[in-house]
Design a protein around this nucleic acid. Structure first.
Lengths: 243, 243
DNA sequence: CAATTTTCATTTGTCAGACAATTAAAAGTC
DNA sequence: GACTTTTAATTGTCTGACAAATGAAAATTG
């Protein structure tokens, strides 16, 4: 293997790209062991430090895992849903916070995606999913709950709704959208009355899902979406008037 | 700053986590310069190599960028949609290929998400989006097109449909689902007749979007989804029978 | 012989120091 | 003032070393 030394990119970035391509293309199957750092250094004609920096880049993307010891080394990692989730959430959160995405835009995306899950969830939800949804609704009604805790419970409720669809790919895609909304939701101070309204709407969604009525679930989600946007608007307006 | 030396994780991973948390929490705003590698090494009481490995991890996630020279250093990077797209596509592609996600599951997720975009796209699509969709439909009808080129055009068509919704968050979320499907779609050999059918269905979608008829677009997408699943099933069955 | 312990080789993790490459600011020159 | 040269700061790369982990082989012991 060789690397272009005249490229503008770092050597470690080039090496990481080369190995990444090999993994993504399927040339290196899961659990295959990469050559040792010393061997890679020889092959690419760079120092071991440079190889290590490249490997750390790949490790950050969960593409490889490393193990010390005699039979250790770097191995192609099976990307698990949990790893993919957390990466997606980090990326989505930053994307929203760094690009001044409006509450409306984020909210629209979130509810559009959730509505895509609702009919599937109505058909396939297990008793477990229903129990989680009911439990979160109950928690949301507890007095003395902080806004942050209320929002966290809200996220948990919606995750259960999404997971109910029984499609891991959907769950993975939605995780980012739902979780990344939390910081934006945390900006809203919930009055007792708005909480009550949201809890009622959540109850309606849970009822529809329990009754396996996809249409009703969709309608309830639309109602919740509209209420959320209206609530946010009033909160932001009140805040602007205060100044 | 201090780091737990008894932790099971690598020092570089711990340092990367600490800095990542600072960035994600918003404690370090975009374009803020991190301390130099030497200063970080002092603060965390580790060597410069270890700091560098931590920084490479963050660079791999596009959280920072580095610049050489007197006023250089590592800066908090504004995560752009393009960076987020490509990361999402890499992750989604690996997730599908490494976890033996069935064609049905991936297809269901993709079309469920696209259906979420369709009504928005019908309302907001620009002439540009329509032109792209028409151009890709035309390309798909060209004789002598390889299966790969046909699939690539298919992806481009669906991206235009999604982008038509005018919601960058949706586009970002959908990019992974749509693009990651391509390797799976490439497994299907398209006959002239199946291509013709798909092109007809694409035309129907484009017509509905042009007419700003969300309901018709949704119906056309459902039809396309069903046809795609049926086509895949027949292809896989034929392949199984061949053995 | 079987079970256990010890030794050993391999590999990653960390460190220290050096030099090259790059870059912008500072100093010098006309 | 405009231009050139110098300088200092910073990242990129290399070298060599040692520590820590770990499984396999060898030695030991009953």
């Amino acid at each position: 293997m060789k690397i272009d030394p005249t490229s503008s990119k770092d050597l470690s970035a080039q090496i990481a790209s080369a190995i990444r391509d090999a993994i993504v293309s399927g040339a290196m199957p899961v659990d295959e062991r990469l050559p040792s750092e010393a061997e890679l250094a020889d092959q690419f004609e760079v120092s071991r430090s440079t190889v290590r920096e490249a490997l750390k880049r790949l490790a950050a993307q969960s593409l490889i895992r490393t193990q010390r010891g005699a039979t250790g080394g770097a191995f192609v990692n099976r990307l698990r849903y949990a790893d993919a989730y957390s990466q997606q959430i980090t990326t989505s959160t930053l994307l929203l916070s760094m690009n001044a995405v409006s509450f409306e835009t984020a909210c629209e995306a979130r509810y559009a995606l959730e509505r895509a899950c609702a009919p599937l969830s109505a058909t396939r939800r297990t008793p477990d999913h229903l129990a989680t949804m009911r439990a979160e609704i109950h928690r949301q009604g507890q007095p003395g709950l902080t806004d942050e805790a209320f929002c966290a419970s809200d996220v948990a409720f919606h995750r259960a709704l999404v997971d109910g669809a029984g499609n891991p790919v959907l769950s993975y895609q939605l995780a980012g959208a739902v979780e990344a909304m939390q910081p934006l939701m945390n900006m809203i101070t919930f009055t007792a009355r708005s909480r009550e309204r949201i809890i009622t709407l959540h109850g309606g969604i849970a009822d529809a899902i329990e009754a396996q009525d996809g249409g009703a679930a969709d309608a309830a989600l639309v109602e919740l979406a509209e209420y959320t946007v209206a609530l946010a608007q009033s909160v932001f307006e009140a805040r602007a008037a205060q100044r």
